[in-house]
Design a protein around this nucleic acid. Structure first.
Ligand code: ZN
Ligand code: ZN
Ligand code: ZN
Ligand code: ZN
Lengths: 165, 165
DNA sequence: ATATCTAATGTTATACCATAACAGTCAAGG
DNA sequence: CCTTGACTGTTATGGTATAACATTAGATAT
């Protein structure tokens, strides 16, 4: 897991960061303000780190960067910042990878699905309205009251399909 | 995680085990034979352990039981058996819980969603054809070739809703 | 039957992921 | 000011998972 960041440096999707990272960061600040929570330096920097990465990062990957920049260097520092971002819709946890990725659409309320490429480790956030609705239906049929869900697909991203063709 | 097995001893769903456990075990044997793989003693016993549990079990929970019965007592013993069962459709991995549960419908090819109760830790396997289709569609729209997916819902099972009403 | 090969099991050791508990710090609001 | 609650940092520990290698059990082929 630790070498994800190094690998596949010119990979697929539009989460590549630098492009719209600034815009997303601004949205994130707005959202934080709207919610009345503080986007403190560690938290903000953590979000930037996620935005700059083109793959999902493990907590220890994030921690390493934070520590190198003068923030705390012990696991709780990273986990707290990451959990904060997730709680407030600024990042998502990818359970299959034990990793985190910046939300591509902060501000909107959304239920996302994640498309994880087995070849390049990229993670793309896809709109999951319909998937979510279908799941809600299936849950209702079982008398289950759905609170939230994890939807993660594994396969090959468009770029890697072309590359392997 | 370790006390899941102890808790909620008369819980909700139909995965309660003992009822149709025997039938499922038979199906599993058939399926293994059909696939030309061996359901060895550890593997079979591991499946039985999962079937007897009424919640998903962590690898170390399973390991503890296996060790107590004369099988190996080191992590790889449990992980290998569990991974075998998952690979061959006899069990499922519940990523949100870092746990495993016996498949309720071995034999059939199926893409399942899991309904995880926050109150009693029960895990119910729900048919997810429609959810899966919707996800396939969303993936296709992103040019993503879907291989497999994890669909896990968190909420309240029917029984626990009644209990808390 | 015996040699041979492969799959499966078991062990040791280690890596990776995550949180509990407590101490110090900082920024309001009274 | 000074209290208060939120935030950051540290130490310590617990839980999850795999790599690497030795051993054994089953199948296959003389
Ligand atoms: Zn998002
Ligand atoms: Zn890719
Ligand atoms: Zn199943
Ligand atoms: Zn329940």
């Amino acid at each position: 897991m630790t070498d994800h960041a190094a690998a596949s440096s010119f990979c697929c999707a539009d989460h590549s960061g630098t492009a719209n990272a600034q815009a997303i960061l601004t949205q994130a600040e707005d959202r934080a303000k709207a919610r009345g929570v503080r986007l403190t330096p560690v938290r903000r920097r953590t979000l930037e780190i996620l935005l700059q990465a083109h793959v999902a990062l493990g907590a220890y990957d994030v921690l390493e960067r934070l520590g190198a920049e003068g923030f705390g260097s012990q696991p709780p520092v990273a986990y707290r910042a990451l959990n904060f971002l997730v709680e407030h819709g600024l990042a998502h946890r990818i359970r299959r990878l034990n990793a985190f990725t910046a939300c591509a659409h902060p501000g909107e309320e959304h239920r996302a699905a994640f498309l994880i490429c087995e070849a390049c480790d990229s993670v793309t956030e896809a709109p999951a309205r319909l998937v979510s609705d279908a799941l809600a239906l299936a849950a209702a049929e079982a008398g289950f009251r759905l609170e939230r869900a994890t939807i993660e697909a594994v396969g090959l991203c468009a770029a890697c399909q072309r590359a392997s063709a």
